[in-house]
Amino acid sequence: MEPVMAVVVGILFAASIYMMLRRSIVKLVIGLILLSNAANLLIFTIGGMVRGLPPLIAEGDKLPAGGWADPLPQALILTAIVISFGVLAFAVVLIHRAYEVVQEDDLNKMRSTDT
């Protein structure tokens, strides 16, 4: 399973970078969304993928019998998803308001603060 996931993560990273390099701010945000998903999948894969081994300890035991899935990466991903949800919601509001103010979707035309 891991090699497949590695390829998927790689494709997601590539796609997100391609999107972020476009000029449109909408595509920029789509790229960021893809990127955060790619990062989450990466953590998920790194944590080790096992099937059907919940990290539950039977009563009286000190360790779960027969190995277990590491719950921590999932907790990390959950936190990261919550955070990226908030941040990306903000980014969507931002591009919406930026579009209203600037009347332009093209990053090349948003250069008045560059030097």
């Binding site: 972020m20 701010i25 920029l28 960021l32 903000f90 980014a91 931002l94 591009i95 308001r97 930026a98 103010v101 600037v102 990053l107 948003m110 250069r111 008045s112 603060t113």
Partner: peptide
């Protein structure tokens, strides 16, 4: 306007 343009780069 300037804030929006600056913010997009900053945020991204």
């Amino acid at each position: 306007r300037a804030q929006m343009e600056g913010a997009i780069k900053y945020v991204a």
